[in-house]
């Protein structure tokens, strides 16, 4: 019993540095998923577009960023780009990471959004057109509002993936939750620190899972 108390006391000392470092984990995942949704929407529309050039460019984007490892993209933006094109030097680590995560997430989310849009029954578009709506009005007032409900679960999934992928940023010397955990592990010579760290990750994913469920219910009110 005393041993358990001792371990708990030790763990409580780690909570503060762990929570502080999770700021990077959280801000990076929230921001890059939001930017990813915005970028992904445009790329998805490009993929649906009848313009061959736009269609090919957007398809190429998805092929490129979904087809290479995120870690490689992060290294490329942070280490290789400044050597290849000095004008594109990004010295702010957080910004470099944010760009890498955003462009990567946009590729995945473009496919989520495209699938959601194309899953809406054709009858909806036909009905809108017969009421005299322009193609743009049809897309933004009829199709997308209905598609949103269908994209929420996969986007929630994507968010949780990104949240965990943020542990890659330690490779460019950003100290996130995972990096702080392993720093504590090696300085205190105990692997027990993984326990409170895992709990923090679970709290984050738990809160966001709940939030996405709420969002889904909110958007389901028309059905």
């Amino acid at each position: 019993m005393e041993k358990v108390m001792e371990i708990l006391r030790q763990m409580s000392g780690w909570v503060d540095p762990l929570v502080k470092s999770s700021g990077i984990t959280l801000s990076l995942s929230v921001l890059s998923v939001i930017i990813g949704i915005l970028g992904g929407t445009f790329i998805a529309l490009g993929r649906i577009s009848k313009n061959k050039l736009i269609n090919k460019v957007c398809g190429g984007y998805i092929f490129l960023f979904r087809g290479t490892p995120l870690l490689m993209q992060l290294f490329f933006i942070y280490y290789a780009l400044p050597l290849a094109i000095p004008a594109m030097t990004l010295n702010n680590r957080f910004v470099a990471a944010l760009i890498a995560f955003s462009v990567n997430s946009a590729a995945y989310q473009a496919e989520i959004i495209r699938a959601a849009i194309q899953s809406i029954d054709h009858g909806q578009a036909e009905a809108a057109r017969s009421l005299g709506l322009t193609p743009n009005q049809t897309m933004f007032l009829v199709i997308i509002p209905q598609a949103i409900k269908r994209m929420i679960p996969p986007i929630g999934n994507e968010f949780i993936m990104v949240l965990k992928d943020t542990s890659l940023v330690s490779t460019i010397a950003l100290v996130d939750l995972m990096k702080r955990t392993s720093q504590i592990q090696s300085s205190q010579a105990t692997a027990l620190v993984y326990l409170p760290s895992a709990v923090i990750y679970l709290i984050f994913t738990g809160v966001f899972t709940w939030l996405f469920n709420r969002l889904e219910h909110h958007h389901a009110r028309y059905e």
Partner: peptide, 18 residues
């Protein structure tokens, strides 16, 4: 103050002026 996983990255950063 920055800590890297690999020493090579420290020298890369020095070369890039970061």
């Amino acid at each position: 103050y920055f800590v890297y996983d690999k020493i090579i990255q420290c020298f890369d950063e020095l070369k890039l002026g970061r």
